[in-house]
């Protein structure tokens, strides 16, 4: 009998996949269909209020940060900080969202919180203008980094990839115990919207090939088979309704934060609560969300999910 040797890389990917599966299984609610049933964790939280407090309420409503991390855990938060624009442009995650998430992770006992992205524009200016470096500065254990050098990435095989079979992902993400997606909700001229799934491209070394050599939407879903955040927080305090992802475009204030353990569901809800180019859309009209649903990465069917609305004090 031939025994196939497993490389360290494969081992890491497999472990990550197992962990993701375990987390997914753990997150399956015991009773389905009972809306806001006492003691049952909802699938989606929609928190109203200003960004910081709404994040706090949303995370508490979904079970608190302790549900996601054990003391000593290494956390990576993936916001959007690809553009050197101020928060008002809605092209980057609101700094209060990052600050609140960081604070909750630290309180839950995280040993380190890294806020990571591979920005399109100049790293320093992105960190400064977005306000995200400032958001982390209050915490000794947290730091925001723009990561571009190849040495910080590691090649990962994508077994379930239909177009993308291998890519280079940030080592710090592969090493992390918890990955939190924290995108801002915005339009995207190529993929309709840019939310948590599209945001995973910011953890990749070379995304040029996504655009050049393959169907972008398929490649995003392929990537999401290996990068599944255990917690997704979507910043819909204000959304970039058109001219995304770089802006400047029409910014619509929604004063909402979405939280979920299912990133497909979170993205789907963000599509449906938002107005895009002056119109309303169904989640299924966004190709990469529909494909992720079809491939079993999550559930975009909002009507079948338990949604709990909370108001931040």
């Amino acid at each position: 009998m031939e025994i196939k040797k497993m490389s360290r890389r494969e081992f890491l990917v497999k472990s990550a996949q197992c962990a993701a599966c375990a987390a997914a299984i753990a997150s399956i609610p015991p009773i389905a269909g009972a809306n806001e049933h006492a003691g049952v964790t909802p699938d989606l939280i929609l928190a109203n209020g200003s960004p910081g407090p709404a994040v706090k309420s949303a995370v508490e409503a979904i079970g608190g940060m302790n549900r996601f991390l054990k003391p000593g855990a290494r956390v990576v938060i993936k916001p959007n900080m690809s553009f050197a624009n101020p928060p008002e442009w809605a092209t980057t995650t609101h700094p209060d969202v990052v600050a609140e998430l960081t604070s909750m992770c630290v309180k839950a006992g995280a040993s380190s919180v890294l806020v990571l992205d591979n920005p399109l524009r100049n790293i320093e200016m992105c960190l400064e203008k977005s306000g995200i470096r400032g958001a982390c500065s209050a915490f000794d254990k947290a730091e925001a980094y723009g990561v571009k050098d190849r040495g910080f990435f590691q090649e990962v095989a994508i077994k379930e990839g239909k177009a993308l079979n291998t890519t280079m992902i940030m080592k710090k993400v592969l090493e992390a115990d918890l990955l939190i997606a924290a995108p801002v909700a915005k339009s995207h001229s190529s993929t309709g919207v840019s939310l948590s799934m599209k945001g995973m491209m910011g953890l990749v070394y070379d995304r040029r090939t996504f655009h050049m050599d393959m169907d972008l939407d398929t490649a995003i879903v392929d990537l999401c088979t290996v990068l599944k955040p255990a917690l997704t927080i979507i910043d819909a305090s204000r959304i970039l309704s058109d001219s995304g992802p770089g802006g400047p475009g029409k910014v619509v204030a929604l004063n909402k934060i979405i939280a979920s353990t299912d990133f497909v569901a979170a993205d789907a809800l963000a599509v449906e609560i938002g107005t895009w180019y002056g119109k309303k859309f169904k989640a299924a009209q966004v190709k990469h969300i529909r494909m992720a649903h079809e491939r079993g990465l999550g559930n975009m069917d909002i009507s079948s999910l338990r949604i709990k609305e909370v108001n931040a004090g």
Partner: peptide
């Protein structure tokens, strides 16, 4: 500023939506 040029008589959907 709402000045995104999106006038497309042939297509009613904005980019990226199906």
């Amino acid at each position: 500023q709402e000045d995104h040029v999106f006038e497309d008589p042939q297509k009613t959907l904005p980019p990226g939506f199906e």
